[in-house]
């Protein structure tokens, strides 16, 4: 297990560095220089360049850049709020996005797996068909169409929850965005875990378990579900990507002051530094999540955890 985790951590770190390198190249390629719109004498500019180490060869600059990014020193915003450190811009927004995102993951994952497992066990019943319909719709309908419907119906017509995000009612106003965001992951998880459950139910080891007298909840929990969870865990990571994408739209629709709406603003106003910082943060979060999933995978699947060290052969 130790070697396995070490390998995954190394790979994650390598990916992070690769991402940083791409971002660094982009910053280097971007038209204009950070100092061009300020009225400075050539000497001043030269001094600034020396100060920020821009005259050094690129490996040194990259090292410095990577160190800055990894330590949370993201530089300043150029357009959105001039010369305000990006970190300050992020502070409150990150918490809002993270809360909605985590709520959506928790809701979508638990409900999705539950639905999938239930419809696999009650295969070909009304419940199964209903679940199938819900998941096809959930997968096919873009999250923002669902979000729009939700905001129109539950926010505008019925007025159950705030139509737009109110910082004062953080909990109540996070309900609609969370529900809207969780539909996609829920639908695809329901579908996937149903298929995996059915697969597990047809497997030889379930036949053996049945033939030795295992039945009921025990058969489902310790034989079917445990094995079905292995592939289910692997699709969690792609779902998080979908969530990130979805969060942009959701935050726009419900005007949530999160990092998603900040990214849209940054892209539209060409605020490179903010956009690139946010890209880095999204990458880091995603890579971190993939690492967690990989470790979880190892915990569930002994074939990953235990390499064939102790072999029993004929």
């Amino acid at each position: 297990m130790g070697a396995y985790i070490a390998k995954r951590v190394m790979l994650s770190f390598a990916t992070l560095l690769a991402v940083l390198f791409i971002l660094f190249m982009l910053m280097d390629l971007m038209p204009g220089s950070p100092f061009n719109d300020e009225k400075q004498t050539p000497e001043q500019i030269a001094r600034s360049i020396a100060l920020y180490g821009l005259d050094k060869p690129w490996p040194a600059r990259f090292g410095r850049y990577a160190l800055n990014m990894l330590t949370g020193n993201f530089g300043v915003s150029y357009v959105i709020s001039k010369n305000i450190p990006v970190t300050d811009l992020l502070k409150t927004r990150f918490a809002v996005s993270a809360r909605i995102g985590l709520q959506a993951v928790a809701l979508g994952a638990s409900l999705g797996v539950l639905l999938g497992v239930a419809s696999a066990i009650r295969h070909n019943t009304l419940l199964d068909r209903a679940c199938a319909l819900v998941s096809v719709i959930g997968i096919s309908i873009p999250s923002y169409v669902f979000a729009l419907t939700l905001s129109y119906a539950a926010g505008f017509k019925l007025g159950w929850f705030p139509l737009l995000y109110q910082p004062k009612q953080a909990i109540a106003s996070s309900v609609l965005p969370t529900v809207a965001l969780s539909l996609g992951p829920m639908a695809s998880l329901a579908r996937f875990s149903r298929a995996e459950m059915l697969d597990a139910m047809d497997s030889d080891y379930i036949q053996l378990a049945k033939s030795k007298g295992v039945h009921g909840p025990r058969l489902i929990a310790s034989h079917m579900l445990r094995n079905a969870m292995i592939p289910i865990v692997t699709v969690l990571a792609p779902l998080v990507v979908g969530l990130m994408t979805g969060s942009l739209v959701i935050e726009k629709i419900f005007s949530v002051p999160g990092i998603g709406s900040l990214l849209i603003t940054a892209i539209q106003s060409n605020d490179y530094n903010v956009a690139i910082t946010l890209s880095f943060i999204y990458c880091a979060m995603y890579i971190g999540f993939m690492l967690i999933v990989d470790i979880l995978y190892g915990v569930i699947d002994p074939r990953i955890r235990l390499v064939k060290e102790a072999g029993f052969h004929d």
């Binding site: 030889d204 036949q207 007298g213 039945h215 034989h223 292995i230």
Partner: peptide, 23 residues
């Protein structure tokens, strides 16, 4: 399952590679 399978009648399957629960 409670009274017959395993207790009275057991079964061995064709492929030992897949008939044990891997987890």
């Amino acid at each position: 399952r409670r009274n017959i399978n395993g207790r009275r009648i057991s079964m061995i399957f064709q492929d030992p590679m897949t008939s044990l629960n891997p987890t």
